[in-house]
Design a protein around this nucleic acid. Structure first.
Length: 567
RNA sequence: GCACCAGUAGCUUAGUUGGAUAGAGUGUUCGGCUACGAACCGGAAGGUCGGGGGUUCGAAUCCCUCCUGGUGCACCA
């Protein structure tokens, strides 16, 4: 598609002798449509030219040689030059560009992106707090992919560490009191809570738990056997949730996968001479980098830590995937951990490209109105329960609004789960979220179902029309009204929106965009009759409908939501 | 105590590299289905952008300071 910003910068460049690249960064999109489609503020030139901004604006305006096929008109308002683009050109460009392939790009060609997301802890319930990492990671995955990047999605399962030493200890003590095969995670969670209580009361039990983990690392037969059992049972439970969310991962290599890859890391760190003994443990001091807390590589009993495993993972991923970016979609509670690990990674002697590519994509916590969720305290909401409730509520609304609908179950799943996913992706990821059933399962206003509903209406119109006109038959004269233009401008910005998502690792930018597009279409839909006597007008509007539908569907699926054809 | 993050309408929030009159949704309120889906659309009311300084032609945005909330701070992950 034509690049309007670039065209405008080119024109101003000719009139001012300032480089086109510099000018392009100054060109902005006015908030108020009454100020044109693009604007060039002259204020920053005032100092240099020693003239008042309005004077500069007028001078530039006089020197501008406009291509009427691209720019309709330019107005000087105060210190601004306001550009109005050629409406028909915009319509032509957008209509030509949108097809099934729309949004696909080769911006990321040849670049590898590793995304580490979801990563629930084995033997603990998969609760609503795990949703954010799962859906943010999945959305980023899809968006990088459509932009042409080679993406590797990794579920870095929490399947290792002292928590297993605790579970093994609890199982050893009271295993026969619990029916683990019947409700694996529920029963294991009870054991986990109980052993934690005991650890608090009796330090020697905690020591024993740590020792169990050391045994596990040393491939002790009994510990390994129990650990494998817990892991298998947990994965079966997790799959239920992943099936509902339709989550896919390219790799399920969890922490345990790196157990045999840590000695190399430790050896590398020893060679640097930075690995120091401190209070019986082996640590890397990071005070020089402004991090007060040292990074523990080896505990005093000789076993490894989360950080050691993450370092082994960085080394492995650099070698295996040659990543340009490695994203960690993990709660902001772990900010310090990643700061430490990324800093220590610089000692591994890997290419700067890799250490520069490490990025913690932090997100806020999901809190209950009563405060934090805690597996130990038992106050949490299981994700599976939320998703099933969402489907149930969607079904009730379908029964009420559209009882004749076919595939009710499938639609209820798409709408219900879509609402939950969208709710989690709608706000900036860094913000905390106080969980509320009615908010998470709201289907009205700025929600996932609103976007789905808008799409369904485009489909419905197309069905009523019974045909799709050919692009070359569209008369763009009928797409220059305010409502059509609003839609076209948004669609014009689709790829730019996706790029912004990857620049900020912020899927909510796409969520907002889809809301804006849905609103623009709803307004258009309410103001204009689409099926009507005049065939030429109808063709143009029907085609616009189809274009909107395609973008809504593509965008919604990028967020990891399903899109129903009817609802 | 130190560090990091957040603070925008009753509630949930958007706000591009500083730019024109700070936008939405929700709730309240008024109006719109003999138009292709009302899970929708349109209008009204609602703001000292946490407070105070500063930089700038221009600050929600940058700097300083204070307040409030959250998170983290060595053998959990």
């Amino acid at each position: 598609m034509i690049n309007f910003k670039e065209e405008i910068a080119k024109q101003i460049s000719k009139a001012t002798n300032i480089s086109e690249q510099e000018l392009e960064t100054y060109v902005e999109i006015p908030k108020d449509k009454n100020n044109g489609d693009y604007a060039f503020p002259c204020f920053r030139l005032a100092k240099e030219l020693k003239k008042a901004p309005p004077v500069i604006a007028n001078e530039i305006r006089e020197k501008l040689i406009l291509d009427e096929n691209i720019i309709d008109k330019v107005e000087v308002v105060g210190g601004y030059l306001n550009f109005y683009i050629n409406k028909k050109l915009l319509a032509k460009e957008v209509i030509k560009a949108v097809n099934e392939e729309f949004g696909k790009s080769d911006i990321g060609k040849g670049k590898n992106i590793v995304i580490d997301y979801s990563a629930p802890n084995i033997a603990k319930p998969f609760h609503i707090g795990h949703l954010r990492s799962t859906v943010i990671g999945a959305a980023l995955y899809n968006i990088y992919k459509i932009l042409g990047y080679n993406v590797i999605g990794i579920n870095h399962l929490g399947d290792y560490g002292t928590q297993f030493g605790k579970l093994i200890e609890g199982y050893k003590l009271w295993g026969n009191e619990y029916d683990i095969d019947k409700d694996p995670i529920g029963e294991l969670a009870k054991i986990y809570i109980r052993i934690n209580e005991l650890c608090k009361q009796d330090e020697s039990v905690l020591e024993q738990c740590r020792y169990n983990f050391k045994l596990l690392e040393e491939k002790d037969e009994y510990c390994t056997k129990i650990w494998e059992k817990f892991k298998d049972l947990s994965l079966q439970e997790f799959k239920k949730v992943y099936d509902l969310l339709e989550s896919k991962f390219d790799s399920w290599n969890g922490e345990a996968f790196y157990s045999d890859k840590m000695p190399e890391v430790i050896e590398m760190l020893q060679k640097t001479g930075e690995l120091k003994e401190s209070q019986g443990a082996e640590v890397i001091n990071l005070e020089d980098s402004g991090i007060d807390t040292p990074c523990i590589i080896k505990k005093s009993n000789g076993s490894t830590t989360y950080a050691t495993r993450d370092l082994a993972a960085i080394l492995y991923r650099a070698r295996t995937y040659d990543f340009d970016k490695a994203l960690y979609v993990v709660s902001y509670e772990q900010t310090l951990h990643f700061k430490q690990v990324f800093e220590v990674a610089k000692l591994l002697g890997i290419d700067k490209k890799y250490t520069d590519g490490l990025e913690h994509v932090a997100f806020g916590m999901v809190l209950l109105p009563s405060g934090r969720m805690s597996t130990r305290a038992g106050n949490m909401i299981k994700l599976e329960d939320l998703l099933n409730e969402a489907i149930q509520r969607a079904k009730e609304i379908i029964e009420q609004k559209n009882p004749e609908l076919e595939d009710k179950d499938d639609v209820a799943k798409k709408v219900g789960i879509g609402a939950v996913i969208f709710n989690d992706l709608a706000n900036s990821r860094i913000k905390d979220e106080i969980f509320d059933w009615d908010t998470a399962l709201n289907f009205q206003g700025e929600t996932g179902p609103y976007i789905q509903y808008t799409y369904v209406r485009t489909k419905s119109v197309l069905q009523k029309a019974g045909y799709l006109p050919k692009v070359e038959d569209i008369n763009v004269d009928y797409l220059v009204d305010e409502y059509s233009q609003n839609i076209l401008k948004l669609i014009y910005n689709f790829e730019e929106t996706l790029v912004q998502v990857t620049n900020k690792e912020e899927p909510s930018i796409l969520s907002r965009y889809l809301i804006d597009l849905s609103k623009a279409f709803s307004a258009f839909y309410n103001e204009n009759k689409i099926i009507l006597e005049d065939k030429e007008i109808q063709d143009a509007r029907v085609y616009l409908c189809s274009v909107v539908g395609q973008v809504l569907k593509t965008g919604t699926e990028l967020l990891g939501m399903g899109m129903p054809n009817k609802m």
